[in-house]
């Protein structure tokens, strides 16, 4: 009984301290980050390199909050089943055959520094923005799908069906016959800069797991850079030497 009260008190104290610390620190942090958001009329530059760190230790098996967040943000609906539906982000369960050790992680466009999709694209529709975000310019995508052949992460989807006017949202133009993939929620990044939170990360945090850290890999003071410096992280298929924007911990 006494012990329970003790834990409750401790929890309260911890939260209160956290909240006070947050109230004290947050305005400064936010101001600083808001100040860093790019004005709308300026082009993105390579001063930033956006990326995400995903802690698979916090990622729950069977949880797909990030996927739901993405689907909601980008208004991706199911049409003719999983074989042809677009999946910008998916949960992958991995299990070691020998030890039985298993983990779960979200898989999406890894925003490579040297993206094979952009290399093979005949028209230059697949490209890497100066700030590291890999995108498809659907205005010049001819739907050849060579990028999908080239992507080592199976991160891309082809739009196999008409997307009707009722399904279009202004911030994510999508249409039949072109290839698409995770944009790192570029509409949020362009608006909020270092303060942005991609929809997957937002949903994960809202679900209480907080496995994602979004930020500027070029800024040594950003949270993502500091966590990477402290704990390190793994790139999936690092053997390919693609220098990924998405890093994982705990795999």
């Amino acid at each position: 009984m006494e012990k329970e009260a003790d834990t409750a008190r401790r929890r309260f104290l911890a939260r209160a301290t956290g909240a006070i610390a947050g109230m004290v620190v947050a305005p400064g942090v936010i101001l600083q980050q808001v100040a860093r958001a790019k004005p709308a009329d300026e082009p993105v530059t390579s001063a930033q390199r956006w990326g995400m760190l995903i802690d698979t230790n916090k990622c729950q098996k069977g949880c797909d909050a990030c996927v739901q967040g993405c689907v909601k943000e980008n208004n991706i609906r199911s049409h003719y089943g999983p074989a042809t539906d677009s999946q910008w982000i998916r949960k992958v369960e991995v299990r070691d055959r020998n030890s039985g050790h298993s983990f779960s992680l979200p898989m999406m466009c890894q925003h490579c520094a040297h993206p094979p999709c952009a290399d093979v694209c005949p028209t230059g529709a697949s490209f890497r923005r100066a700030d590291g975000i890999v995108l498809v310019d659907r205005h010049i995508c001819i739907g050849c799908r060579y990028c999908m052949m080239a992507c080592p992460y199976k991160a891309r989807s082809f739009v196999h069906e008409d997307i009707g006017p009722e399904e279009h949202v202004p911030w994510v133009p999508r249409g039949k016959g072109t290839v698409e993939a995770c944009t790192l929620c570029v509409q949020r990044v362009d608006r909020d800069g270092a303060n942005a939170v991609p929809a997957c990360a937002e949903a994960c945090a809202a679900d209480g797991h907080d496995a994602f850290v979004f930020g500027d890999l070029n800024d040594p003071n950003s949270r993502i850079s500091q966590e990477l410096a402290k704990h390190g992280a793994t790139e999936i298929r690092a053997d390919l030497g693609l220098d990924l924007g998405i890093r994982y911990r705990g795999i």
Binding site: D119, P122, T123, G124, I140, C141, G177
Partner: peptide, 25 residues
């Protein structure tokens, strides 16, 4: 078989010369 065969003109006007597909054109 392209997703957008109507945009063949794009393939003739936009080139990414690192792409072997573009070389093949």
């Amino acid at each position: 078989d392209l997703g957008r065969p109507d945009r063949l003109i794009v393939a003739m006007t936009h080139y990414n010369f690192k792409s072997i597909f573009a070389w093949n054109i």
